[in-house]
Design a protein around this nucleic acid. Structure first.
Lengths: 360, 360
DNA sequence: GTGAAAGCGCTAACAT
DNA sequence: ATGTTAGCGCTTTCAC
């Protein structure tokens, strides 16, 4: 591998000059620049990553800790998001470090470790909790991070989130308009922020519509298709079973659909089911699933943008040119997505879309 | 962040001595060792990652390039595999760098880039092709890698693979025993190694069983549920439609099941469908899918083991202790999984399992 | 416009 | 058993 030194020898200049020529400093003579550039080109020079990182005290790396694949986390969601993050990070020369929480190891200790070892410049968080230990740690450490999702306490941390409250307004109105008055829901644990927000919204909008939702219609704490099946089965065995089941993700909805079928209901006729996320399979399910769509991959990209902004902010502007270039390259966010934003566009709420299909 | 220098000052020793004390060299006095260790502990010393990497010419990082999420790649598979890789890598202090192929960018150029920038010590490859440009590049560059899957040309590269030939033997025998004689199959492009192997095996074992498989029963080039639906629909509209459809992944099978339903067939009675992979949903599909199961997460871990072996091999044994410790920690592979292995246990073939469910 | 020198934090060869 | 020196490859003062 060619180094600056090699180039310097070749063009009879000092390492310093070569470094500056390559970096495009203004105080290098044009001829030197072109000499150096072509020498570098010829010699296939690529800067040594670790040397640069050591010197610059920068890892050029974003960390993403996967809660744990086994948790029944909606897989398709995760892939899409990761793709969005990785591609966007690559645009800025950032790498993506992925860690999966060991069963043994405390998730939060992974964050601690990655910070103390200096392996990442910042983190991306998803599936935030109302009280999120990760967000609290990172705030306390003043370590850069950006979230897909919010936390309950108003933090100054940057985030992108879907407007789950609005999404549930769309769903409940849709169901009420279809004549449903016995509406149940199956969701994740209420400790998860989005799950909490969605449930609140369901309650609120049903109340507005004058629809009562009894306590035993509310099933919180579930993720998987299997969970959806079991909870829906129980719901349908109640003395007064619901005529519609709102599920807080698509997998739960698939399970509920199956439970409905097994109990002899015609899905979309005798009983309605809705999902959330619009994973690829939803469109192909039988019947196709009514659900809420979110541009997951784009969201991943947006979160990267927010994080990189935050990193530079905390670092103080050092690399002037780079900064402005980077900031100007931010993904513009389509206006029709944006519901709300803080004055710095660092906290974004996106408008989700209701996709009406065969299950309602 | 405390550095070796800080510790050295504290204990009145040189940086070198501190470094060696921490590394556990034998030529440091016991008291110095304990002094240094406790000082390090107190000061919360953590070695600077980038300094170590620069100095050691090691990235302590494994690269994994995701072909592209949109390609219809079986998502659940990807997650499980990644989890296995990440966890195992973490056991050895290795990081996992994940890159997603940009739509614009040539996939192979990502490998080139990561190599020339010195960002990873080795790669993990999945979904290998019969002629695999990545494997060829890495062989040519003599850069460490390990594969989940084989390539057509016999390479000395380490791999783990399922015995797809055997898997298809199980499937065809199962179907033939159930009385099927009109058997079709839907698979990925034949350029993909596993798809090719599976197809060959299907042909071979059907021939052995005296079952003829006409050309128009063979549909290669597909990945997604949608593909599965469309191809199955066409198959079922043939003058002589098949009575069984072998699909080379579970998503294809889901599509085929739906096509069968839509055409008025009773799945598992009028028409049989089989999948491959046993993703979580397969068990919950309607009807539950007969398929081939593989321990994906474990396989991810095994591939990491092979890769780390290869990395150390190419590097020459430098860190004696570390090496032996590492090698001794390898995941033992259950005997009942192992079908075949080369003499160094660097090329492993695993025995897949047939899971019989409702679609046959 | 260019170069010498210093240093990021670590490790290792070579003294002593 | 310990310290001195050197250097990984890069960037950034600071001097000329």
């Amino acid at each position: 591998m060619a180094t600056l030194k090699d180039i310097a020898q070749r063009v009879n200049r000092s390492v310093t000059t070569v470094s500056r020529a390559l970096a495009g400093y203004s105080d290098v003579s044009p001829e030197t620049i072109s000499q150096v550039r072509s020498a570098a080109e010829e010699m296939g020079y690529v800067p040594n990553t670790m040397a640069r990182r050591l010197r610059n005290r920068s890892t050029e790396t974003i960390g993403f800790v996967v809660p744990d694949s086994s948790g029944g986390y909606s897989e398709a969601f995760f892939n899409e998001f990761l793709a969005g993050v990785s591609k966007r990070a690559a645009d800025f020369g950032y790498d993506l470090l992925v860690a999966v929480a060991h069963d043994k190891e405390d998730e939060i200790s992974i964050y601690r470790k990655l910070i103390s070892e200096g392996k990442v410049d910042g983190f991306i968080l998803t599936r935030t909790y109302r009280m999120d230990a990760r967000a609290e740690l990172l705030m306390k450490e003043n370590f850069p991070f950006a979230m897909f999702g919010r936390v309950e306490k108003a933090l100054s941390a940057p985030y992108v989130d879907e407007d789950g409250t609005y999404a549930m307004k769309l769903i409940t109105e849709h169901l009420v308009n279809r004549g449903h008055s016995r509406i149940a829901c199956i969701g994740q644990p209420e400790s998860i922020m989005f799950s909490h927000l969605r449930l609140q919204s369901v309650k609120e909008h049903l109340a507005t519509a004058g629809v009562h939702i009894p306590e035993d219609y509310i099933r919180m704490g579930y993720f998987s298709q299997k969970d959806g099946y079991e909870q829906a089965r129980e719901l349908l065995r109640l003395p007064t079973p619901p005529s519609a089941i709102i599920c807080f993700n698509d997998l739960l909805a698939f399970g509920a659909v199956n439970a409905g079928k097994d109990a002899g209901f015609r899905i979309g006729k005798d009983i309605a089911v809705t999902g959330f996320d619009d994973i690829p399979m939803s469109e192909h399910y039988r019947p196709p699933l009514t659900t809420i769509s979110q541009p997951i991959q784009s969201i991943g990209g947006m979160v990267v943008d927010l994080l990189l902004d935050r990193i530079q902010e905390l670092r103080g502007i050092t690399l002037q040119e780079h900064v402005s270039e980077v900031t100007s390259r931010r993904i513009p966010i389509p206006e029709h997505w944006k519901v709300e934003a803080d004055h710095h566009n660092h906290q974004l709420l996106l408008k989700p879309e209701l996709i009406i299909r065969g299950t309602t």
